[in-house]
Design a protein around this nucleic acid. Sequence first.
RNA 1: GCUGAGGUGGCGGAGCGGUCAAUCGCAAGAGACUGUAAAUCUCUCGUCCGGAAGGACUACUCAGGUUCGAAUCCUGACCUCAGCA
Length: 336
Amino acid sequence: MNKQSLASQNPCKLLVICGPTSTGKTTLAIDLAKKINGEIISADSRQVYRGMDIGTGKDLPKGVKIKLPWFQKYGYYEVGGVKIWGYDLADPRHEFNVAQYIKFAERVILDIIKRGKAPILVGGTGLYIRGVVDGIPTASVPKNNLLRKNLEKMPPGELFEKLAQMDSLKAGQMNASDKKNPRRLIRAIEVAMWKINNIKKEKEMESRKKDLTVNLIGLTAPEKLIFKRIELRVADRVRAGIKKEIQDLLKKHVTWEMPSMSSMGYRQWKDYFGNGRSQAEVVREWETEEKKYVKRQMVWFKKDKRIRWFNITSADYPENVEKLVEKWYSSDRIEA
RNA sequence: GCUGAGGUGGCGGAGCGGUCAAUCGCAAGAGACUGUAAAUCUCUCGUCCGGAAGGACUACUCAGGUUCGAAUCCUGACCUCAGCA
């Protein structure tokens, strides 16, 4: 089979811009979108929550409101004439997960392509990007609250034993770290159990295939610079009113235990409200957490060899990205 | 100046005669990740050799002392904090 025919089988092109936090992914994406007639889909596990704007860095210009087409339950923001999807998908009182995200993203991407525009997936949540780009076969296996509750208190060793009995293959694949990770073990058991009860569906699940050609672009910078930016950004967010944002959330019955509130820039304030923790301390910890997060992100992204990295300290990086992207869009060739 | 408490690894903080290179937490470094992913989890963490087992060395403010043996007991010096002046 030659390249031409492969290309015709894969008409959908998805540009991905990823990388650690505060490298200017969205800014770059907006500029690119203007040039290639694109629309942005945010791949960010926190920006999906409504009312969590300052802390998650949605960076929306003042007064911009979400636009909700009457026939859809999700909408977009328009920044500089560019549509951004993927914000405000969920109520912060509810939990949100990759499966929901994938479903959402696939629908929007398809819609964007149908309208003749170029989808640009932008974000720092590696798992969400992977979900869209490569798919996660077990993502559709629903959670089982009763099971989770029952297993909650079980020590990792016992959980592992249980998993080994139900799905020895999966158990064998688990690495040393995950064998001690209760959350992962419980999910694995959940999946194993579901498979036992849904043998037919499992086959269907595996046969689903992606019909996308992707181009992954990563933005980086020297760690020092990223850290500096983080400090500035945290200070900005305090100034912009993160405290009020949190108070508003609390008023709307969002509580500290909810997954949404485990976000950086939120959870650190818990003891500030009530336990007399100082703002300086909150800010310090917030900065530290952001820095640790950058490292985790890099560990994740580094492993994906498809990503082409651009250092944002080189003055001509936007041009270089642009050139690459334009070339990619104009060719039918599939990227390796 | 007096009285009380205390000085332990980058920080917080255990240990209170031997099993202590020193529980634990944080920070730091490395890494994992297939429905919570900004989440969760793992490993390393005095120095040197070793993949590890292990070994060598230097350590619990400083200086002496008691003891077979001291981070742990005694004396003094320096410093910190709290209360009284």
